[in-house]
Amino acid sequence: MSTTELHVHNPVEDLLRQDRIPTIWCPGCGIGTTVNSFAHALLGQDIDLKKTAIVSGIGCSGRVSGYMNLDSFHTTHGRAIPFATGLKLANPELNVIVYSGDGDLTSIGGNHLLHAARRNMDLMVVCVNNMIYAMTGGQAAATTPGAANSTTTPYGAFEPELNIPQIVDAAGACFVARWTAFHVMQLERTMAKALKKKGFRFIEILSPCPTYFQRKNNMGDGLAAMVDYKKRSKIKNGCPTWETVLEPGGEIIVGEFVDREREDYLTRMRRQLGSNYTEFPPQMEEHESEGCSKEC
């Protein structure tokens, strides 16, 4: 063992708000793991972090915007995509990332997701799917698999679940992928690829919810769910999205399903308006000065 004192520093910590740590997430939750992959993807790129904004809605995954040391926006329930759309249109230079949960993006804000994909807004949407509304008390969401118990479905849900990659693909997203919290390295590569792309990019990440989903369905703790993902997942890049339905106990199809080029909203708007469109005049750069100004 080396006796020299090494100065070691976790590179992810540069992207976190240290005063907010420890996180509120339960032991065994996979959201923090996805944040690691996201932070590594951001650090590995040549991206101006000053021009990167992260928007999230309400929920456990919505807390990510508060923990990342980027320009962040914690919005109302289900409305992360509309806020992000406004942000992008007002300042097209920004690289806007929506980081939210399945209950927020697909259940309450389902329509916004569809229409942002239809418009091909230049957003990157990361949906952490824990199959339930976790923070609000474990109610059944649109992604809760059929027959699963939850607070609001004590006899099992009588509705089939939503296959998110399929509807996003049908609505016209130009990049659709799904990974689980177990696939950290693959997720990092996919996120790095999506960060560089233009148009509506959607990444679904399956994540364990030990407190509400696994406990109510006798599925063990978060670690058991991760081992289960390892066993059941099968990588099929380019798989048609209608074949990616999640069946309880069946295979979890993961991979990058869709990667296509399509004209995004802003490009199309500029093309159709032609010379009638003028870019917003560039703003004077605000100089961030250390300490107080003269007035105080």
Partner: peptide, 18 residues
């Protein structure tokens, strides 16, 4: 650093010795 990638609480990370 795979432990660091998996840790949801940013409590552990691996590094290579120089």
């Amino acid at each position: 650093n795979l432990c660091g990638m998996y840790c949801p609480d940013f409590a552990i990370f691996g590094y290579r010795n120089p």
